[in-house]
Computed example of a mutant assay.
Amino acid sequence: MSSTMRDALPPLSCLRAFEAAARHMSFTQAGGELNLSQSAVSRQIKRLETDLGRPLFERHIEGLRLTPSGERYFRVVQRFLRDLSDETARLRRRGDSRQLTLASSPTIASIWLARQLPAFQRAHPHIEIRILTVEDPHRLDLGEFDLGIYYHVPFEVDPPGLTAHAIFADEEVAAVCSPIYLERHGKHITPEALLTDHTLMVVEDHYHDWLTWEIWFGELGLAWRPPEHTLRANSFQLLMNATLAGQGVTLGWMRLLEAEIRQGNLVPAMAHRLQSRGKLSLFTPRHRHLTEPMKAFQKWVLSGETPPQDH
């Protein structure tokens, strides 16, 4: 083998597979994080071990274990990938250390985040905000954003490479509608009538962080059957706009919709409320150096200093 080939770095795909497998101590979990099959991760690791001329893992009945060489190499590779990710993110932001890119779903971004940002920007006028809307947090590219704001259901919705911190300690979910809708259909709506005489907003192709009508009815101990009238869409933002326009009743997260309720744009359709399984959370990429804008926003949003804005 020529010296040029011996000096060549291993493929980045092999290094990423090794880092993920060593961090999880599982080829299967590494594959889930990288959207690869378990066998594909195994092939990448084997290719890397062949290139290095030594094993990186010891394979036992109880699972994987790093060899001494693997442990040293893991520390180097993890530091290298973290530094590469940080520098890539900085370059993609055109080197502007003042910029903060926030990722969120379209609904959270438009209904909640947009109301909070004026207060944050008044406190931190030197920070430039960029918002990236992505419906599914699992599709986030860790190099394209700094912090994320999504609903997080522990042990069910855990996007790889992210740590979740709850913004609100607790939150309730209730059936909500516009005052116009309530006036038009009567001010006293019962659970039974909700399923027969009203239009329910139904999100299709939802992710695991979504609470369905059937689950909501079941956990409240209410009798459930498929509703007779629905308006369906694969976008909660679209259905929320339809709800505000008086087209039906939707499930609403009360802290998320606090400003809309306080301003009278939305009202509870019934008194029933259910504790939310998920909490609005700040997602922070692991293995990233926090920039000053990231630290400032993290401290601000997790300190409870985010009252809904009326404008």
Rank of each mutant, 00 (worst) to 15 (best):
R43F: 10
T163R: 08
R43C: 01
S110A: 13
H138Y: 13
Q121W: 02
A22Y: 10
T190H: 07
A271E: 14
F168H: 13
L56N: 04
P160H: 08
S85P: 01
E62M: 12
L34C: 13
L266R: 02
W300V: 05
D141H: 10
L147P: 02
R94F: 14
H24D: 12
P307H: 11
A20Y: 04
S281P: 12
R277G: 11
R72K: 15
S3M: 12
V267E: 00
D205I: 09
W112C: 09
M25G: 10
Y207M: 15
A169Q: 14
T306E: 11
N234P: 04
R232W: 00
D146P: 01
Q99F: 00
Q29P: 10
S303D: 11
A174V: 10
L34Y: 10
L244C: 10
K299Y: 06
E71H: 11
E144A: 12
L222G: 01
V157G: 03
T4K: 10
L9K: 07
R72T: 12
I45V: 15
R94K: 14
L274S: 05
L302A: 12
Y150F: 15
H229V: 03
E135T: 04
Y73M: 13
Q99H: 07
S303I: 06
W253A: 09
E183N: 06
V267K: 00
V157K: 10
K295F: 02
A164Q: 03
E219F: 01
A259K: 05
E58Q: 12
I189C: 08
A245Y: 07
H138W: 09
Q78L: 08
L282W: 06
K279I: 05
W224R: 02
R277P: 05
R47C: 14
Y207F: 15
A245Q: 13
L147G: 02
A223I: 08
E192Q: 15
T67G: 06
R93W: 07
F80C: 04
R6Y: 08
T28N: 05
H60R: 14
A164Y: 04
R54T: 13
S3Y: 09
R43N: 07
A123S: 13
H165D: 05
R16L: 12
T284E: 15
I167S: 01
R54W: 06
E19L: 03
V134N: 02
T67V: 11
H188N: 11
I149N: 00
A271L: 06
H124E: 10
L211I: 15
P159H: 05
A233Y: 01
P159V: 09
I131D: 03
A166Y: 04
F80R: 05
D7A: 15
L9G: 02
R79I: 09
D86S: 08
E292A: 15
A233M: 05
L239G: 04
F18P: 07
P10K: 05
E128G: 08
R75A: 12
H126E: 14
N241L: 03
E135R: 09
L84K: 11
L81N: 07
T190R: 08
D146T: 01
R288C: 05
L266M: 10
E128Y: 03
